[in-house]
């Protein structure tokens, strides 16, 4: 858990107001009347079972898709009316993003940096800085098609923060990474958080969320059903671990029925 920084909880950088996204003429409610405020410098973890609406929420907040109802403010910009500004001040690491496999790591970051409008003179050192941080500097001219899943994830993470955004959306940031690389990513998130960046993480890896997030929200069937610090959630559910709390909240499956499979 973070201890160094002081959170400014009075000022919500991400303000979600009754956000909904329905599909199939309203039959499927991917996100249902979501209300949430995430403060500046806060790292917020969004947890939920598969298909709960986590990725849809992140896509809505980044302006990739439009909500059916409600809206959200990202650092003062409305996702409906100021989608371009929202994208300019935020960075997204999507769950399973495509990369330009025929570009080198450097060329890909150059492309993404240019799309964020970074000046060419500032872009080159920034790319080298990120590649060096992710241990990819010696591979910078290799085509991404030859990269492992973990290396691709590093390049994508670098592309999401290349413009040093105020708000960062990370959908499964440690997926496919080995423990060493995962540690690098976690350190990066902590550093960014300490620098006052607001981070929204969606992940299934409960230890990652537990380690990085100031608060967590559990989303199920598109609805936010629990919110608070990890201790709050555990206290509310009278469980010892976040995993037990998560299972208790989301499925109601009793512990005894799943424990035989854990042996």
């Amino acid at each position: 858990m973070k201890t160094e920084k002081t959170l400014n909880r009075s000022n919500g950088v991400i303000q979600i107001k009754n956000l909904s996204k329905f599909y199939s003429k309203g039959q499927i409610k991917a996100v249902d009347d979501l209300c949430l405020t995430i403060n500046q410098g806060e790292t917020f973890g969004l947890l939920g079972p598969n298909g709960a609406g986590k990725t849809t929420t992140i896509r809505l907040l980044n302006g990739l898709i439009k909500p059916t109802n409600g809206t959200a403010n990202i650092n003062g910009f409305d996702i409906l009316n100021d989608a371009q500004q929202v994208k300019s001040i935020s960075g997204l690491l999507a769950e399973s993003p495509g990369v330009y496999a025929k570009l080198s790591a450097y060329e890909f970051l150059e492309l993404m940096g240019s799309l964020y409008g970074i000046n060419k003179t500032k872009l080159k050192p920034r790319i080298n800085e990120l590649l060096s941080f992710f241990d990819l500097l010696d591979r910078k001219n290799d085509l991404i098609e030859g990269f492992s899943t973990g290396m691709r994830q590093k390049v994508l993470l670098a592309s999401a923060i290349i413009h040093d955004p105020e708000v960062i959306f990370l959908d499964e940031p440690t997926a496919g990474l080995d423990p060493r690389a995962a540690r690098t990513v976690k350190q990066l998130v902590k550093d960014m958080s300490n620098r006052g960046k607001t981070i929204l993480i969606s992940s299934h890896r409960l230890p990652v969320v537990e380690e990085l997030c100031d608060r967590i929200g559990i989303i199920h069937n598109g609805q936010l059903i629990a919110i608070g610090t990890v201790s709050d959630i555990k206290d509310q559910t009278q469980t010892r671990t976040l995993e037990e709390a998560f299972i208790a909240i989301t499925s109601g499956v009793p512990n005894s029925s799943i424990s035989p499979w854990r042996a």
């Binding site: 994208k87 935020s90 997204l92 993003p97 799309l115 964020y116 409008g117 592309s159 999401a160």
Partner: peptide
């Protein structure tokens, strides 16, 4: 047809 590829691009302010 690769939709994920667009997710990346449209997360930037490209029109």
């Amino acid at each position: 047809i690769r939709d994920h590829h667009f997710e990346n691009l449209f997360s930037t302010p490209v029109s």
